[in-house]
Design a protein around this nucleic acid. Structure first.
Lengths: 338, 338
DNA sequence: TTGAAAGCGTTACCAT
DNA sequence: ATGGTAACGCTTTCAA
């Protein structure tokens, strides 16, 4: 039997037209809704198309001047769990919205080169999800006329849309919760200062402290391992009764160390994270944390994409997402929470 | 200023030609290496292009019949860590190889629909990385003339290239290592039978057992949580001295439960995983496991892509990857390992 | 070495 | 409602 698998050339509208005995125009219309076309005829065309495995070539359609629906997502190395979850959800959310996410990632040099080359596509937007680098990539995109959406870090640049979580407010609420629960000797495990989220979260912690001061403090790498190490280092200091961590990965690392060290959580030391990654909700960890809402982030990006498509020349905007304090057992102390 | 009509058109070769005072053909040649073009002229063109932010439109170039360099990656829900790591590395590896990976994911219905729609692009290949579903997606692709590369699960279908790790041999080596270390009462925590890897790994375990029989056995979901639950259930059975887990996520879940239960690893119970995800190598876990080599997988896929491009009509092939036993402390028992 | 012109597969705009 | 015919932006062939 002859079939498309034998064919080396891709089926075109002309092939379908020939097979169905109609014009190429009719084939095009059959695949576009809201066009005038005899119902029976459309049926016949669709059937013929199905038979030879035809569908409109997106390259040609995109060339035609329509929207390409192509979107690039620039992720860094995705060193921690949250980044991976966010990237996965973003890709999924985008293709639920009818967009095609092209992933760009890897170590700096490779990723940067790829990010530049991908601009040869008429992208609807470049989505930046990289903590540290990104600002220069953004500049290239803007120059090429490709809209930029920066997520997780605010890039002050003309025409760049930003979406960011309220790091400071979120952390403030979390630490306030610890204090209301009776914690007084708080140690802070911060993130790398190259990430804009790090100083913001730290500021939120200081806000909540009020008159209090941090018992101790150090800077981690947003990884579990660095949290583990940080906990060990900080435990030597004057006995803290709470560890506030700039993200969940470090908090879980710290938790692992504390358990090994025989420290009871939360009675000896309470623990607070930030992000609410999947693992944190798992009963064996049950970490109190501040939710960095991935679904809201994805929804906001989709919305931004839409608004930009409506008005390509609009001003860049900043969307701030609200966090949500998720109280779990790592902060559930004897003292009642109010 | 005057409204949305401010839209800036993307620069085209004609724009560059005008600016540099050359023909459109020359501009095209300037961006194609191995073409006849005066060096000084090429320089001038490239400069002009840089100035107005031009690069060849990949849509138009792809239409021309060249290779599109577009590749779709179909991932499932990526429920476990290994899937996420694999997907991230794959995307990165592909764009290091000059390919553009379009990610397709999400819950079954949405992902399936997207996978079908993405075929409107002249894809160089559809890469399937989904344990359970995928076979029917593969059929659609083949019908459309899009080559399929299945990773992690062998799809017996004309023209489908497969790449899979030697699950059985790997697990056999791992369990043999436990037995040499003195384990005799082995309990098995398996994966969901809908994944082809599950029965293979189990078979490898049985191979190594020789005359022995499993003390106990249950089926998990390849998630940490299911491993945790499985360990609790199995611990009630006649005291095992080893837990063999079908993947690392479950092994780490089991480890967490065992530690909570005060069981000493590996002295009371040894632990074996499969995959070697990042977390397993972290000192606080230090899980003995069988490496499911992501880098080799990515390299093989790139190679397969290349071979398929060379000969679109070639037979489908099966590449099997070797595992590597990674001995860590979760299996380091008193009895010397031979 | 260079420029003109012919496609590539669509969609959109014409007249029917 | 329908078929013919311009674009769309590029690469490649063909003459020069």
């Amino acid at each position: 039997m002859y079939g498309p698998s034998k064919r080396t050339r891709r089926a075109t509208a002309a092939d379908v037209a020939r097979l169905a005995g109609v014009s190429r125009s009719a084939v095009s219309r059959a695949f576009t809704k809201g066009t005038y076309l005899d119902a029976e005829k459309r049926e016949r065309i669709l059937l013929a198309a199905e038979e030879i495995g035809y569908r409109p070539n997106a390259l040609a359609a995109g060339l035609q001047g329509q929207q390409s629906n192509l979107v690039a997502i620039f992720v860094g190395d995705m060193p921690n769990q949250y980044d991976k979850e966010a990237a996965a959800s973003l890709a999924t959310g985008l293709n639920a919205a009818g967009k095609w996410p092209i992933m760009i990632g890897g170590s700096d040099a490779v990723a940067r080169a790829a990010a530049s080359r991908v601009l040869s596509f008429p992208l609807e937007a470049m989505i930046l999800r990289s903590g540290s680098l990104g600002a220069d990539v953004a500049a290239t995109c803007i120059k090429m006329g490709v809209p930029v959406i920066s997520s997780g870090r605010i890039i002050e640049q003309d025409g760049v849309d930003n979406i960011c979580v309220r790091n400071r407010e979120g952390m403030r609420e979390g630490v306030a919760h610890l204090i209301k629960g009776g914690c007084q000797r708080i140690a802070y495990i911060g993130g790398p200062s190259s990430f804009s989220s790090a100083p913001e979260r730290r500021a939120g912690c200081l806000d909540a402290l009020g008159g209090l001061e941090l018992i101790a403090e150090c800077e981690g790498l947003y990884t579990m391992e660095s949290g583990y190490d940080a906990a060990r280092a900080l435990l030597k200091e004057r006995r803290p009764d709470a560890f506030v961590c700039a993200n969940d990965a470090m908090a879980l690392g710290a938790m692992t160390y504390l358990r090994e060290a025989g420290v009871c959580i939360p009675d000896d030391i309470a623990l607070l994270g930030f992000d609410d990654i999947e693992m944190s909700g798992w009963p064996a960890f049950d970490l109190t944390t501040i939710r960095n809402p991935i679904d809201d982030m994805v929804a906001a990006i989709t919305e931004l994409l839409h608004r930009r498509a409506m008005d390509p020349a609009k001003e860049g905007e900043v969307i701030l997402l609200d966090t949500k304090l998720v109280k779990r057992s790592s902060s559930r102390r004897l003292l009642p929470d109010r």
